[in-house]
Write a protein that binds this DNA or RNA. Structure first.
Lengths: 208, 208
DNA sequence: GTCTATACCGCGATAGAC
DNA sequence: GTCTATCGCGGTATAGAC
């Protein structure tokens, strides 16, 4: 449970290799089903080397998830957007990019599966995810809602949550839970409907 | 992987006890970390009895999740609502009941953690969840949107998804991922804002 | 049908050579 | 520092008594 580092003076490239091997294995198999033997093989080092760089399996896992949460997947929901665009363009661009990235980055869905699946046994990792992914999405979108002159929202913060929540839940049901064939739905309909509610216009009005 | 039943002629009460013990263990520890020894102890039978009722660990797990998906948690998002109410009352009642049930039923969050966490390794269980929980929520809410005379929604199906998605995502972030203290938010704000978008009114207009 | 006892394997973690 | 070899435990699954 301790994310402290009792190591160093050890070759950093081995550390990186172990983290990379751990990422491959943990994301593919989950925490409990991953063995340190396979991590060592994937990292192309011996098991003893793994244990000289990380105190135990839990410590490696925590270090790895922190690295992913604070680096690789930190801004997946919050890259910079072209601000000189209509709200319709800005919001649909944002939603589409989020859905594309999450779908195309093959490890991202497994990453979310792991965070959610282990959120009871590793609550500190879940909280790190909330801070680095969810909170950043909320606040960036909320900033846009607050400062965009065309929009006068009664509760920009709640609206940002609804927007992100609808997109993320769509991603969870369609892709993560393999619901595409059971409850099919064009992403465009979700996005368009969301934008209509936020801009308080109907699709017809937009086309006039 | 085969959900067929190679058993029966076995005491049904032992089967029920094993399923109950399995539920306790799998929901608390996840699939891989659960041992058949502990399942047997929790069910108060011997390990051999477990294996005479279920072919192997995977088969027990699949049977258990199917039981939960089709029974216990099937209607958590879709109990009957008082139809003789204003849309505001109906929708806020629905959202509050969903959030209350999911929060108070202590096993429900772990159930969702398990479904999502194992959705890559057990895709058929994820699909059963989509069919029995998500789809039912969508279609009930969509029916209401379509038939409620006060509401004229451009896309009731997409609106139902947004409504459910915003509520479920709120539940995931605040409760499942322990985000309550990091990104605090009153549920009322989410619900009120959602209702305003759906009924196309501001909070002020409602109070006039 | 259900039990006790056990086979057999892979796990996390470490000792000791180099 | 990194390796090979190994320990001891706990895992899934089964054989055989009753």
């Amino acid at each position: 449970m301790n994310p402290e580092k009792p190591e160093r003076q050890l070759s950093p490239e081995k550390t990186a290799a172990i983290l990379a091997g751990g990422m491959q294995e943990f994301l593919a198999r989950g925490y409990a089903a991953t063995s340190m033997d396979r991590v060592a093989i994937a990292a192309k080092v011996s098991k003893a080397t793994v244990y000289s760089h990380f105190r135990d399996k839990e410590s490696l896992f925590v270090a790895l998830i922190h690295q992913l949460v604070e680096g690789k997947f930190r801004t997946i929901f919050a890259e910079e957007e072209a601000l000189q665009a209509t709200p319709q363009e800005f919001l649909s661009g944002l939603a589409n990019r989020v859905l594309d990235t999450a779908t195309n980055e093959p490890q991202f869905l497994n990453f979310m599966r792991l965070i959610i699946g282990e959120s009871e046994r590793f609550p500190q990792l879940a909280r790190a995810f909330v801070q680095n992914v969810e909170q950043i999405s909320f606040s960036r979108l909320c900033q846009y809602f607050t400062h965009c002159p065309q929009l006068k929202l009664a509760d920009p913060e709640a609206t940002a949550r609804i927007f992100v929540g609808a997109i993320v839940h769509f991603l969870i049901v369609q892709e993560m839970l393999h619901g595409k064939d059971i409850v099919p739905m064009e992403r465009t309909r979700i996005i368009t409907t969301l934008i209509e509610y936020v801009t308080n216009r109907t699709g017809d009005e937009q086309n006039r």
